[in-house]
Design a protein around this nucleic acid. Structure first.
Lengths: 145, 145
DNA sequence: ATTGAAATTGCGCGTTG
DNA sequence: CAACGCGCAATTTCAAT
């Protein structure tokens, strides 16, 4: 990964629909050269894909929260991953160091729905306790999420 | 926002570079009709933009963490937002309910760099204490292509 | 439906290891 | 020499009107 590659990644992060020609002019290459680099970066996994950044409200999700998860003793990571994947409310989830075992970022229609989700979560058996931090506002968004 | 609109959003989330023609076939509309809808959703803010999903390692970021922020008494939200925006390590930051005032999701090259970032953060004056949870692995990721 | 822009592919060239 | 990445140009697909 050289500097031109990183420049292309930055441009595509800013606008994933930029044309090859536009990128080519900005990095001083030809359009086909840019296309081939992007193809290569996709194959290498440097680019995971392209996505529209959608306002959650368009889907009726008005509540967002970070939910810390505490597992039952002896719980395996892949069990949790499997169980979490059955909850469409979860946008992302990470295994973390510190007090909690994991943190999930979730979207629900409202606070009552968040409460319902947390109750559901504990029915699976792996998660025995949670602690939630409801998002009041976005302070910063780098557009790469 | 009707059901076809949400279907289009889902398709564009899955692959932000899908052609109008491809989308049109999947939702049983004509390509121009799809374009008009997408233009409208962009204008409405339902679609915030398009972005490449990049592997952080391509930029040399090998450490990711969630950092809880505790403000100095009397700190204004816009001051924090301004100060946070000067730190490129921050991917996203939210104002939250609960113990901490805010949570930032950050990317650094390694743990030492994370330590350096946290020290830098406190130099700004608004943040007087932090508590970090380092991400060990991704358990779940919803958006991709 | 038409017209113009963008993406895609074949090919030969120069550089590099 | 072999592998790689580039630009050019021709073709096809796509976007905009």
């Amino acid at each position: 990964m050289d500097d031109v590659g990183r420049q292309i990644l930055a441009l595509l992060t800013e606008d994933g629909r930029r044309s090859y020609d536009d990128i080519a002019r900005r990095v001083s290459l030809s359009a086909p050269a840019v296309k081939r680099r992007i193809d290569r970066m996709r194959a290498d996994g440097a680019i995971r894909g392209f996505s529209a950044i959608v306002d959650p409200e368009a889907f009726g999700w008005r509540t967002e929260a970070l939910v810390e998860l505490f597992y039952a003793p002896g719980t395996q990571l892949h069990e949790v991953a499997a169980s979490l994947s059955r909850h469409p409310e979860i946008v992302e989830a990470w295994s973390v160091t510190g007090d909690a075992d994991a943190i999930a970022r979730v979207r629900t229609v409202d606070n009552a729905d968040l409460e319902r989700f947390i109750a559901d979560l504990q029915l699976d058996g792996q998660v025995i306790r949670t602690r939630s931090q409801v998002i009041m506002s976005d302070l910063l968004r780098a557009a790469k999420a």
